[in-house]
């Protein structure tokens, strides 16, 4: 029984949180932090926005800057905090975590540690504050950031054509003037079901 517990502990993101201090390594149950009825303050939202902006900066994957994605990001935050299960507890936890990391490493390196060196197993249940921050907030912000247009920066390395569509991207109806995808335009003699 004891052995099993040790194994579980190892796989549940409790021994891997080497980058943080007391806050990051505090253990929590793996489920969403209970926060029904709670809401975020303006300051909370600004602190979370900093995390979101840091994602765009770290991967250099926003065409102009993250502000283009701000309204979509707010809409997601609203959906996640005004409907059950409420993410407000996770968001506040993420602020605690990033504050500790910033105190330990400074702002720039704090995000570098969090995004690239956290040691968190993304597939294991999160059982520390750091793991909660990575899995419920950072990872979800990354998905949202790519969905909102961050994918467009890939594709131009060899002067190629930018991708135009990605899982979740709201690009407007396909009857507007912007082509929805990079389309194949065949020669006239090799694309029709023409007759011989």
């Amino acid at each position: 029984m004891y052995t099993i517990n040790l194994l579980n502990t190892q796989f549940m993101n409790t021994e891997l949180t080497s980058i943080g201090g007391a806050v990051c390594n505090e253990t929590l149950s793996a489920g969403l932090i209970f926060a029904e009825g709670q809401s975020l303050t303006h300051q909370n939202k600004e602190a979370l926005w900093e995390i979101f902006e840091a994602i765009g900066a770290s991967w250099a994957n926003t065409i102009y800057n993250s502000n283009n994605q701000r309204s979509s990001w707010y809409e997601m935050l609203k959906a996640k905090t005004e409907n059950a299960p409420n993410y407000a507890g996770e968001y506040v936890n993420a602020i605690y975590v990033i504050n500790e990391l910033k105190a330990m490493y400074g702002t720039e390196d704090a995000y570098k540690k969090l995004f690239f060196e956290s040691g968190i197993d993304n597939n294991a249940p999160p059982t520390t504050r750091l793991a909660h921050c990575k899995i419920y907030v950072v990872n979800e912000f990354i998905r949202m950031q790519i969905t909102a247009g961050g994918f467009k920066s890939w594709g131009t390395k060899y002067d190629g054509e930018q991708a135009r569509n990605y899982h979740g991207f709201l690009g407007g109806t396909r009857y507007n003037r912007t082509p929805r995808v990079r389309a194949y335009n065949p020669d006239t003699n090799n694309h029709k079901n023409d007759q011989e």
Binding site: N61, F115, F116, N139, I142, I146, W154, K157
Partner: peptide, 21 residues
């Protein structure tokens, strides 16, 4: 290429570029 997953996995911009192409 699931770009977001590669970012979640901690791959850098340069590493993801390698994978995309």
């Amino acid at each position: 290429v699931d770009i977001a997953q590669l970012m979640i996995d901690g791959k850098t911009r340069e590493e993801i570029d390698e994978i995309v192409y």
